[in-house]
Design a binder for these strands. Structure first.
Lengths: 225, 225, 225, 225
DNA sequence: AATGAATGAGATTTCATTCAT
DNA sequence: GATGAATGAAATCTCATTCAT
């Protein structure tokens, strides 16, 4: 009776365990990498013993996959929904998508997953397929679609889609990667403000380096003359 | 008897050993990561036995550091020299630097070093300092300097240097990273042609997405004709 | 609420628990051996949870001993009673004892106990004494007594008792052993019919391989000449 | 030069290692069973460390199979050769085969393999096939062939071959089993003398329990005198 | 009495490193 | 210098057992 009654300690913990373990695993995998992170450390970070971890995940590898699924799969649909509903200018949509991504992924522990993927994917072939299907393809579709939208609406020049997509995505992912690798090792200069980077990047992408005037600028230097 | 017989081969090999071991280690570390690469495999790939490896490097960890140092130190000076000597338009210099980097680093095994750095730097803190000093700072100085050159010469708009630098560097490094991680796991779409990516990126960076002119610019280089 | 509702089922089960657990343990120990059988499997097979098993038996080891004791103790007296009451020819008594044993033990799960004993007795020294006292000695007494009875009544030759007893018992026990080990692994030829084996064995034991005539047959071949 | 020169300590050990490990494994597997015997104990008994064991056998299971192969495969052909060359009476051949088996197998550590097989074969299905092919079938063929030989030569009655074969083999195997299980647990009565058992069994098998002659035959062999 | 989440000792297996040859 | 047999610390994973509910 009264399902709302406060669950017992034991039960509350039971239900929270998987998430606690996934959080601990994410933190440790990001910090040390998949193989350097010991199962027992993950368990300890989640406040349980070694054996308990294996009550919830059958192997370290499955734990890793669960971390990826849990932290990335949810995010895929979101971006697409934002794009589908958006009605304003394409440049603004690009900016929105990037800021959203940074807030939801890049600036969170989940941003470290890209580092793990990069570091370990060659040793886990099935993960490569999973990650490509679940993350790479949808993300590219989203950005490429937005570019196409801008082109169709006359907002963007007809740039080559795959290359432009890569050029747009790379700086953000690279920043996430950086922050969880070299950037995490103190002593660095303060580094870029991600939000500022995004804005600057959007500006650069929209208007280019060349100081265009009212006349078409084909070759920047000569056009001034 | 006859130990004196074929001195050339033996001596040549002896002197070449360290480099052969470093090459083998680089290849294996890039392919499998630091901890998954077994010392014995490295030795085997270099054509020596396990014990011999330890005659040249006191531990796997030191071998790893030597690999990184060895393969990055060469890269530093080159770019700066190219920039210092260059006299043409800044956009062309950017393009030259990027193509050169791709030919000399991105498309070679050394391109995999960035993956190793990203994967392991947090477990080897002293590498972080080394890498920052030897690679990150000079590279940023090089690109930022080129941007500044363009701005000074009136070729580029006065964009914020750090952000623009990042935006220029990221896609190339990211491509290198990608090719040594997910991109190495078959079954992917053919992928981008790096050379084409560089050109498209330069075009995008110079002119932006927005159609400032009356005629769209698809192939900047051709637009000269 | 309604905890009082179905008392019959609950009470019946409660009293039957130990036996259900012993049966489950017997089945699993016979199938997998003592260490390969997991406690939880035993409990599950008995329809209870892991914890409940430990309410009835303080450890897996004690459970094992209880299984052996429980399933062997019943077997002892029966055979002796049959023998004590029997009035016909000794050969017929032997046959009766063997068939009875096969029906009651050899062909039932209890037949697998011998396999467990053989496999584990060295790791459970106290079982050895128990098994010797409770099974080996009475069984040998029973068979040896029957042989003696036959000899006394002039039905059998005066053979050496210990050896003849062994020779009579071994084939049946061995068959039981076989059926729970190699014989359980499919792909075998259909195998012996136990009942037929018993009859053939009795015939062999009674009349021997030699084609005896009216004259004593000491060395078969030469005796023909 | 001088391949006959005494090998170095290191080398001598290297070559002897596999056999030393197999012997240690056999002893321990027989004593404790497969799963209760720890890999480290096996290594220690062979005078090496845990790791060394894995230099020679890729897993405990493979070690186990190697033990079985090594100790049983050699025995197969021998018996058949003895039978093929034998020219005397079939009863004597049976006796010879049995005594030989006892000397070469039953009374040696290899006799304990049957216990291991019985105990573990259900958990190693491929072992069942191997053992059936390599041991069971050839052994049955050997004994059945000898019986047939006796029947053909008029030395034996035409008994049913499968059952008689089983009846002949079982007591010996059972004795081996017994000695490595209950029989190994001290405090037992002295037990049967295997050699005497074999003789008594042969006598029993040849002449049966029934007194066909006017004079009882207690000791067939002595009856010649 | 019954449950099953949690524990942690212990087993197998790997591999960086050593060192006798 | 070169080798590769040997080592043993360490990692993953299992499972008998406990105990809060």
């Amino acid at each position: 009776m009264m399902k709302l009654a406060p669950p017992t300690t034991r039960h509350r913990r039971k239900e929270a365990r998987p998430q606690e373990l996934l959080d601990a695993a994410l933190a440790l995998f990001v910090r040390k990498g998949f193989s350097a992170a010991r199962s027992e450390e993950v368990a300890a970070l989640a406040g349980v013993s070694k054996g308990t971890l294996y009550l919830y995940f059958p192997s370290k590898e499955e734990l890793f996959k669960a971390v990826v699924r849990r932290n990335l799969s949810a995010l895929i649909a979101e971006g697409q929904q934002i794009a589908d509903r958006f009605e304003g200018p394409s440049a603004q949509l690009l900016r929105l998508l990037m800021h959203t991504w940074w807030q939801r992924v890049g600036s969170t522990p989940a941003g470290g997953i890209f580092k793990i993927i990069v570091a370990e994917v060659r040793n886990f072939p099935e993960l490569a397929q999973f990650y490509t299907d679940e993350v790479v393809v949808p993300a590219q579709r989203l950005i490429a679609g937005t570019l196409q939208r801008g082109i169709d609406r006359g907002e963007f020049r007809p740039v080559p889609l795959p290359e432009a997509t890569h050029t747009l995505i790379a700086p953000l992912l690279f920043l996430a990667l950086y922050q969880h690798s070299i950037g995490a090792c103190a002593m660095m200069r303060p580094g870029l403000k991600p939000e500022a980077l995004i804005d600057a990047q959007i500006d650069l992408m929209l208007h280019g380096l060349s100081p265009h005037t009212s006349t078409p600028l084909r070759r920047p230097r000569r056009s001034r003359a």
